[in-house]
Design a protein around this nucleic acid. Sequence first.
DNA 1: AAGCCGTTTGCACGAACGTGCAGAATTGAG
DNA 2: CTCAATTCTGCACGTTCGTGCAAACGGCTT
Lengths: 322, 322
Amino acid sequence: MSESVSDDRRTRAALRAAQMYYMQDLTMDAIARDLAMSRSSVSRLLGFARDTGLVEITVSSPLDHGAALERKILERFGVTAHVVPVPQLISDVDRLERVAMTAARLLSSWMDSNMTLGVAWGSTVSAVSRHVVRKDTHNSVIVQMNGAGNTQTTGIDYASEIMQRFGAAYSAQIQQFAVPAFFDDPAVKVGLWKERSVHRVLAVQARMDIAVFGLGSPFAEIPSHVYIGGYLDAADYQSLSADRVVGDVATVFYRRDGSSKDVSLNARGSGPDLQRLRRVPRRVCVVSGVQKLASLQGALEAGLVTDLILDESLATRLLDPA
Amino acid sequence: MSESVSDDRRTRAALRAAQMYYMQDLTMDAIARDLAMSRSSVSRLLGFARDTGLVEITVSSPLDHGAALERKILERFGVTAHVVPVPQLISDVDRLERVAMTAARLLSSWMDSNMTLGVAWGSTVSAVSRHVVRKDTHNSVIVQMNGAGNTQTTGIDYASEIMQRFGAAYSAQIQQFAVPAFFDDPAVKVGLWKERSVHRVLAVQARMDIAVFGLGSPFAEIPSHVYIGGYLDAADYQSLSADRVVGDVATVFYRRDGSSKDVSLNARGSGPDLQRLRRVPRRVCVVSGVQKLASLQGALEAGLVTDLILDESLATRLLDPA
DNA sequence: AAGCCGTTTGCACGAACGTGCAGAATTGAG
DNA sequence: CTCAATTCTGCACGTTCGTGCAAACGGCTT
């Protein structure tokens, strides 16, 4: 109670400060005098206002020429692209970080009350989760798309942390999926899938309005989280190679042509059937780095994506792979 | 042509800069390196992005529909209020300036393509016009609500300047109303009102989607523009006083109880009949300073307002006139 | 009352930012 | 092409802003 009261005071002050700063162009100094506090407190207050979503900053293209790249991608692949401007020379981590930051902001603009958001887990989505901007919604749900257990650790903490962040940002209920990422024995999966607890999660997944995921890229120079966390062994890799897999979405693998039929590992993975995934109205793919080109091409071919957030150089290569 | 091309380059650069600055939290320095220009140019570019509406900053209150004051005003008067926070001790000009700045931003958020915006003229609306933020719309029209001619000057330049600013900000067509503010002889008005040129303007006025106006306050300490520009003489003032007038909207006068019947000066004014004004879907009243309290009360009583933008101290007094 | 611990505040300092000014670049007319 | 008028650019300076740190505060327990 005292929490919520002082929280309310804080919010009121932040609102007032934000109005003065962003609508009246006053300096923090002037605002500080008005609110009878130090300028530094105002600075912090405005920071608070920004990341609680009290202040919303939108950058909108004057529609007619929403960057040439984005228009071309829409024409060629039928997905709405958001090309993140980055310098050509940039470290992989920085690029990912910047793409993730953009993705986080866009996601918050799409998310709303009464929605169910499905999240995959992995380095990309984790990065996104670190930058989500708060937005108050009611009655919304965050649901985990694939299991996170592996042979060494439960992996739950990692995936759970991601979910928590989304849940907190949207004040949403979170729905974990407490199963292994991959089963050793397909039969065990089949058995488990008959359980009521699993059914409940699958039912929530079926109601997803938005799904966010990165792309795995098993044979790229820098392997994704799935490939280093002890989830797969050498035999598994051979199997993927033999099946001509180029990537995965939430631990479901596909080939360059978008097909995923008879990829043996999929019988043991916990991710959503691609057919089911394609029924989600908005499917947001966040991807950065040219290493993921093949994986991205496969995902597009498979029709897994409706909204694509990617860095500039990858976008260029996608349009002209030369 | 070369203009629009270089304008396009500028816009592209601004868009890129804005994305980097507002969505990726980069410093202007970093952006300057990326765009190969000086940091100061980036600063200017971002300024450009902001006031061309490329970047939109919204401050919204998730607190059960805003500050207590605004909620109370809605309950009591049935209008949506936007209370502008200002210190108690502030000069009248500063207060007006800040209220106007807020009004300008809100107005731009409401204005859209294919809309007709009616503007009154006067110190308040003029202040608003100086702060309008650009927003690209198509096929919209700005129409002058009342004449601006007086006995000494045409007054056209003043009113026209205001219209120009709105027109430029929304790339809208502007429709002037080239008649005197007040006629000496009501019969001349009646005659002129039969003219086709006047009919055309009245027809546009009838299509207004939004009307913006300040409030006149003939008997307050600091008289409005109408009362100092040589529009009215001593006899007119006496007539207003005798009719118990407390204020005006676009040179149409009303009493404290909202009535305007038999106010003799109205037969000679060029403003829109209040009955007509009330048919405009969104009627935005911008007002600052406690001197205008009576005028505001009358306007509310008359049902002239749907959206009210006012300063904090006036709002307080409105709710508790003690 | 005393003592502890988590939070908030103001200060101080370095980083980031806006803007007047003067020179460079671009435009338009002759 | 030349030259003047206009716009754009980078520099330099003063202002404004973010954040680490230590002191002050507020809520709890003992």
